[in-house]
Computed example of a mutant assay.
Amino acid sequence: MTSFDTDSTRPPPNIPEFASFEHQKENIVPLRQGRSAALLAHQFSAPSSDLSAERASVHAHFADELAHLDDLDDPLDVFSRYIRWTLEAYPQGPNHESNLVPLLEQVTRKFKNERRYKNDPRYLRCWLLYANYVEEPKDIFVFLMRNDIGTDLAALYEDYALLLEKMGR
């Protein structure tokens, strides 16, 4: 028997059942990088009280890390991990509980004058994500270009082109 021989009636244990989140598929906001099926299965199969407690615990952990940013060599890393976790933990998109938009506002303001982050892909991703939640995303791109934020990175121009295409320009 080889390691590939399995009982064909059941999927391997590490692959989540699609049925565990299939009933919510219309409510899941797609991410450019895709979503983890295992995390989706966990999000939609856990009791809401357990999920709320788990989320509150992680929010508290990140709040503690954010309170000690001055002690870190790379404070942007905390924001980057927090944003990535938030996107995964709230598959239906940002809401008041997720705190995503205020978090994006905080990180974009905090480092806008930091030269070391001007062309950091993580920082630019924060700005580009934030642009999705403002009324006039074009203003974000104008600000980025005028302040030399992300101007050495292709992602800035790719997302700006997508925005202009959406606007019919």
Rank of each mutant, 00 (worst) to 15 (best):
S3K: 13
R10K: 10
P12Q: 12
P16M: 10
P16A: 13
P16C: 08
P16L: 12
A19D: 08
A19R: 15
A19Q: 15
A19H: 13
S20Y: 11
S20E: 12
H23M: 13
K25P: 01
E26D: 15
V29H: 00
V29D: 10
V29Q: 11
V29N: 11
P30K: 01
L31G: 09
G34S: 07
S36I: 01
L39N: 01
H42P: 00
Q43F: 15
F44N: 07
A46Y: 05
S49L: 05
S52Y: 00
S52T: 10
R55L: 03
H61K: 06
D64H: 07
E65Q: 11
P75G: 10
L76I: 10
S80V: 06
I83A: 05
I83H: 03
R84T: 14
W85E: 01
L87I: 02
A89Q: 03
Q92C: 09
G93I: 05
P94I: 09
N95D: 15
H96F: 14
E97Y: 11
L100S: 11
L103A: 05
V107I: 06
T108W: 02
T108V: 07
K110S: 13
K110N: 13
R116A: 03
R116Y: 01
K118Y: 14
P121Q: 02
P121T: 04
L124V: 04
L124R: 02
L128T: 03
L129T: 12
Y130H: 14
A131M: 04
N132S: 15
Y133D: 07
V134Q: 14
E136F: 09
K138V: 02
K138Q: 09
F143D: 14
M145K: 15
M145A: 12
M145W: 06
R146I: 08
R146N: 10
G150Q: 01
D152Q: 11
Y157I: 02
Y157C: 01
D159G: 12
A161H: 07
A161I: 03
L164Q: 15
K166I: 05
